[in-house]
Design a protein around this nucleic acid. Structure first.
Length: 168
DNA sequence: GCCAACGTTGGC
DNA sequence: GCCAACGTTGGC
């Protein structure tokens, strides 16, 4: 029996529960419209261990993703996407010409992993960081709102997911 | 293992 | 462009 309050709280590759995430992108680099155009994108270039661990260990095919625009005039959630494959080594770490090349990584023991992200839809409007801050009381311990938060991949609970979508 | 220096993130 | 917050690096 699946308890409602367990949804979104389980992790691990054997888990059967849906998880939710927020992934940041600078729209000048790669926006929700870019994802809409290409439909699916390898989430390459993450070079933070915690963010990597979420992708490598915790994400499962079908997990929901808030696509967040950072470093822009109105930062906020601009669309929905989903995890579309199991994690695999980020190929850019092996490419000497890439900004994300990592000389310390080997094919036998890759350091950086990623998932592919597929476009679902744009939100009718951007749900801004300002608005999310105003709703903080309804978003208990939302990772995005923690002080000094800089992680580019964050977990979202089922309750947070549902509430944020209700703002749309 | 400590911690100063440095680099990056991302809101403003 | 500024800068607070945080992660990483490397000397010791």
């Amino acid at each position: 029996m699946l308890l409602a309050d367990e949804i979104g709280t389980k992790s691990g590759r054997d888990g059967i529960f849906m998880n939710y995430w927020l992934m940041k992108s600078e729209p000048e680099e790669f926006s929700i419209d870019d994802l809409k155009r290409v439909k699916r994108e390898p989430w390459s270039g993450v070079r933070n261990y915690q963010a990597r661990n979420y992708m490598m260990k915790d994400m499962k095919v079908g997990d929901g993703i808030f696509f967040y625009h950072s470093n822009t005039a109105v930062p906020g959630i601009s669309g929905l996407a989903e995890v579309s494959c199991d994690s695999y080594p980020d190929p850019t770490q092996f490419n000497k010409k890439s900004d994300y090349y990592d000389a310390a990584s080997t094919l036998e023991n890759p350091r950086w992993w990623l998932v592919d992200v597929s476009f679902k839809r744009k939100l009718k409007r951007v749900i801004s960081l300002d608005e999310l801050k105003l709703q903080a009381a309804h978003l208990e311990d939302f990772a995005l709102l923690r002080r000094g938060n800089r992680l580019s991949v964050l977990p979202v609970t089922a309750q947070q997911w549902k509430f944020i979508l209700s703002l749309e």
